[in-house]
Simulated scan of single mutants.
Amino acid sequence: MDSVDSDAQRLLGLIVRAAQLDARECAERHDLLRQASALLWWLEPGSPPRTIANLLSCLSLPLEQWLDSRLRQGYEGALQFADEPTMLCSAIALETNPRLGWERVQQIVKKVRDLCRTRPHGDDEYRLFRMFLIEHGVVDADSSLDFLIPLQVSFNSLYEPIPQHLIRSGYIYLCPGCGWPMEIHHRAVSCGAQWCEQTVGIFQWMGDELVSVRTSKLIHPVTAKNKYRLVPALWAFTLIPGLLEMRLRDGIARLGITAELWPDVDQADLSFTANDRTYSLDAKVWNSPRNLGLHLVDTPSTGAIYIIPDYQRQHVDSLSEQCSPKQIKSESQCLRWVKELCQR
C-alpha cells in the first residue's frame, strides 16, 4: 500500500467513525474531525484548513462534492442523512477495515461451515443456510427458522431490529434487488448497495408513492411490525456477493454446464467442470475497486478466478496488474470465457 492509499484509508476511517457516532457524543466526534482536519491540511497544503463545523456539514454531502478523487478511493455519496449513518458509511467502514466486518461474518459463517463439514448432509445444510441469507434480507420474527437449530445459530446473531429512520408511518420499503429496507428519506431512494443501484436502479417519491426511476414500477410498502433485517456485515459480505454468485451460476447453466454454489461446504463460491478440468470462481462486490485490490493483494492465492460486477469492468486491467498473478474478470468476461471453454 503506497502512502496515498494509506493516508486515504486513515482519512476515510476518521470521518466514517465520526459519522457513525451518536450526535450526543460531541467530544469524541469533534476529536475525530479535528484529526481529519489536520490530515486533510497536510494532504492539501494549498487549501485552507477545514473547521470542525465545516466537516460536520460535509458529512451530509456527497463525498464527491468536497473530497478529492484520489482520497475518496472510488466512493460516492453521503455518509449521513438526518444525523444517521448511511449504508455507504457502513460499506466504507467494512471495506477500509474488512477484518471488522469479516470477523463478525466469520464468527457465524465459519462456525456453521465447520459444523456442516462434520455432518452427513452438511453440504446441503450449508447451501440451505447460505441461500436463506441471500433470499431473506428481512424476516418476520414469527417465521419458522427451525433449520437453524441443528446449525447452532441464534436468530439474534443473524438479524437485528430495523432502525427507526428506515420506517415511514409504520412501513418499510424493500429493495427489489436484495430485499433489504431502503433508505427512504433520501432524494434518491435505495438500499445503499452500489450493486442494487446499478442492477435495479434508484427510486423516488411521487406524492406518497415510491416508484422506480428506471421503470416507473410502484414499490409497495411492507409493515415494519415484527420485522428484522440481516445484520450489515452479513448483508455486505454474504447477501450482496451472493446475488452475483447466483447470476454466475445461472449464466453458466445457460451454456449447458452445471455450476455448483459453495461446493464441498464452501471450498469456493462457485465451481464447474469443463473439458475434464474443474474451475473455481470467487465473486467480489465491493464499492471501491482500489480497496478490493489492496484486500486481494494480502489474500493468499487459492487458484480461484475473481469475478467483479460488469459495472466495474473498466477496473479489470488495473486490478489484474495490482493483484498479479491472480486472475480478475468481469461477469460478462467470465461468461464469454466459459463459452470459449465449451467450444474447445
Rank of each mutant, 00 (worst) to 15 (best):
Q9E: 10
Q9N: 11
R17Q: 12
L21S: 07
C26D: 15
D31E: 15
R34N: 14
Q35L: 11
G46T: 04
T51Q: 04
A53Q: 14
N54G: 15
E64T: 02
P85H: 01
A93V: 01
N97F: 09
W102N: 14
E103M: 13
R119C: 08
P120E: 04
D123K: 14
Y126Q: 08
R127P: 00
R127W: 00
R130L: 06
F132I: 08
E135D: 15
I162N: 07
P163R: 08
P163N: 02
Q164V: 13
Q164F: 06
Q164R: 14
R168M: 07
Y173H: 10
G177W: 04
M182P: 08
E183A: 11
C196Q: 07
T199G: 05
L210A: 02
N226P: 00
Y228D: 05
L230I: 03
A233C: 12
W235I: 04
W235N: 12
A236W: 10
I240G: 04
P241N: 05
R247V: 03
D250M: 06
L255N: 10
L255A: 09
W262D: 13
P263Y: 00
A268R: 07
L270Q: 02
A274E: 12
R277C: 13
S280H: 14
L281V: 09
D282G: 12
P289V: 00
D298Q: 15
S301M: 11
I305W: 11
I307H: 00
D310G: 05
Q314E: 11
D317A: 15
L319N: 02
C323Q: 08
S324P: 05
S324C: 14
S332V: 09
E340C: 07
Q343D: 14
